[in-house]
Design a protein around this nucleic acid. Sequence first.
DNA 1: CGATCGGTTGATATGAATCAACGTGCGTGG
DNA 2: CCACGCACGTTGATTCATATCAACCGATCG
Lengths: 198, 198
Amino acid sequence: MAARAGEQVATRNQVSSDVFVVCRGWAFRYFQLSDGRRQILKFLLPGDVFSSVTVFETAFHFSVKALTEVQVSGFSRSEIRARCVADPNVQIAVANSCITDTHDATELLTALGQCSAEERIAHLLLHLMPRIAARNVIREQRYPFPLRQQHIADAVGLTPVHVSRVFSVFRDRYILAMSEGYLKVFDLPELERIGSLR
Amino acid sequence: MAARAGEQVATRNQVSSDVFVVCRGWAFRYFQLSDGRRQILKFLLPGDVFSSVTVFETAFHFSVKALTEVQVSGFSRSEIRARCVADPNVQIAVANSCITDTHDATELLTALGQCSAEERIAHLLLHLMPRIAARNVIREQRYPFPLRQQHIADAVGLTPVHVSRVFSVFRDRYILAMSEGYLKVFDLPELERIGSLR
DNA sequence: CGATCGGTTGATATGAATCAACGTGCGTGG
DNA sequence: CCACGCACGTTGATTCATATCAACCGATCG
């Protein structure tokens, strides 16, 4: 299944007998409020399940939208469950996926509840960098990075205008720069000092 | 296992072969930053597992503190897993617990990222009310409520001072009142209008 | 060539934090 | 039994971080 950038690929309350995985491109899982506000819950990269608990439930509690052009595959939920019983490795994979999702949610929750704008954005970038690096060859700290500032804003609970200002500050301090779909990090230690949540 | 109010009952990175459940009293799961800030992730009521994914992992990714006097029981993780294989009902219970935790995290995330102080507090109360009602007989919308304003502040990412101001507003508008360990709701529809996340 | 989108920047407004003072209830020790 | 200290909540004054409003710019695209 393919979708173009910006296209919605899953909707809250939608029922499906499949569990979906992103195969190519970027997407994001989000929760939409009736007045238009939305919270981006996770950016989905190739290999990511929309949400690990979809293995256990038939209806989505979230929506998913394509960020770039994406390709998505569905796996039959009943088959996954059958394989869980047969193969402990599948079981472990599902469990690990749950652990990661929970842990990521905990960290994002803490960032949103306790951190300043700079800290939240730094934290988001630090969270994404290794995930991007696991799927691309990174040279000289230059990461493929298709997010618009609006996406970052919706992920960390700020306005796009303020996201722009924070990036200006980071740029002026020679910490990082964003352009042409790439994120370039100049001062990783400083970024970690700001955004590492410890 | 018992603990007094304020006592820490689990610590991040602690390894345990048990999965813990609150049997009596209130506790809360939280994530602590080195500079003292903390994010309360969930309030734990009798019957709640500290965190559902502890069924899958041996070390905690969070801390837990007693809010009132509490009693806590541990269940052997390996035994739970064995029973999962044997009894589909146990499996379903674990799965449901994961679903609930994930869904709650999603909602809290959305509240923290997108909502105002009033909305966040209203949402927290609306989240807690049915959970309290499931464990107590509620008459005339009066709920046992042992939280201090500091706890509410740490859960929704505000200062205690501001929490106090929001409660003043709610009180002045005859929406609710808190006293002597009880929460009394006068205008539930209005509370839902403010905090329902739709 | 105009329209649209994404980003930047400045001016101003506003929600929440901070700082500080005060009150009240309660437990503890004299 | 009283006096004190302490935890908790309230309230006012002020500051600060972020939102809002608005203008503008460059790139892209029909």
